[in-house]
Nucleic acid binder design. Structure first.
Lengths: 191, 191
DNA sequence: TTCGTCATGTAATGGGTTACATGATTAC
DNA sequence: GTAATCATGTAACCCATTACATGACGAA
């Protein structure tokens, strides 16, 4: 998860750990945060795997006196060729690992780098996942709403409405994807 | 988390593991599932802690022939006195552990067993948590929406709307709690 | 000179999941 | 008799968090 997010962000531009976390918060803020306690070990692991490397040409701030041998400043990372392959591999996955609650947001955030067919399959996968949940909630409400206390009922209803809302959103997105099949509209695609 | 959910459900009636999981799905369906792989070890641990015990008087189905010594059927659990204390303790907590994403739903589900002041504090805590997130999302959209690709933007907007929606819901609930201060309305409170 | 925030990291722990294994009971 | 679902459990693992520790740098 974090791995995909890091690969996705670094594919846009080289970043150091701290910066990476800011971008993570800004991009996925509403869904997940990721603490430094998981970010830095992940960066280590990914460097060991050869997917990222220290970025060349970051001697900017140094230049003066305190550097020379023991520069202990920002460690800027960039994707390696293997890292780009790994990212492509992760973005090509169109299974549950892409549409479950924890992961969907991260996959969606990098949809512009994802193949159109894969995008649609992920959106549909997530939608049917939510439709199942919606049916579960509906039948639970029909069967047991009379036995539920006020709060359980409120929770169920709010949950159901949230799910219904997300299903509508996904349906719109799927339609947009479908109709974009012939004339791919890239109104604002960076890089 | 699971512990609170189990205590809360068992406080309504004795249940066995499998049944417990069904109820868990029905009650928290839209938020979390909990697998048997975490449920059974949790039940073990809770029994060791003395919060739950095997329910007396479940020899119903036996009676015929196959029982006598080695009955290996449902293991029905019920709360002990210590378990009830533990539940009260957990329900009295009005800190972040009650209003964060993962835990709020579970706490809310047992609000009818929670003290009114605690209910309001949890609702307000969650609301300000979400308001922070909302402001983060808004400023992120203002600053960077022009640099975002289509999908990142969609994600941000959908996230923002979800948060706004939940804030409105919480505000309504808080108002209801407040106005219920004088005349506690219990239109449908089981047991 | 002290406070905030930038910046990097580790250790211990937490709280769950998946996959596997087994067997009883019920419905067709 | 056989498939579904009820029912209980274990082992291995995963992915993250919290709390802690350290230190540089800029602004007041």
């Amino acid at each position: 998860m974090l791995e995909l997010a890091v690969l996705g962000l670094l594919s846009e531009s080289p970043l150091h750990g701290y910066e990476l976390r800011q971008r993570l918060k800004a991009t996925l803020g509403a869904f997940r945060a990721f603490s430094y306690g998981s970010l830095y070990p992940t960066l280590r692991r990914m460097r060991a795997s050869g997917w990222i490397a220290e970025h060349e040409g970051d001697a900017e701030v140094v230049a003066g006196a305190p550097a020379l041998t023991g520069r202990r400043g920002k460690v800027v990372y960039e994707l390696t060729a293997e890292g780009k392959e790994r990212l492509a591999e992760l973005l090509a996955e169109a299974g549950p690992s892409a549409w479950e609650d924890e992961s969907f947001g991260v996959h969606f955030a990098f949809f512009s780098q994802t193949a159109p067919e894969v995008r649609v399959r992920i959106l549909e996968g997530r939608r049917s996942r939510l439709e199942e949940r919606r049916e579960g909630a509906r039948s639970s409400l029909k069967r047991a709403s009379s036995r539920m206390d006020r709060y359980t009922l409120q929770l169920q209803e709010h949950g159901l409405e949230s799910v219904e809302r997300e299903v509508r959103w996904l349906t719109e997105l799927i339609e947009t994807e479908r109709s974009a099949g012939t004339t791919p509209p890239h109104p604002a695609d960076p890089q």
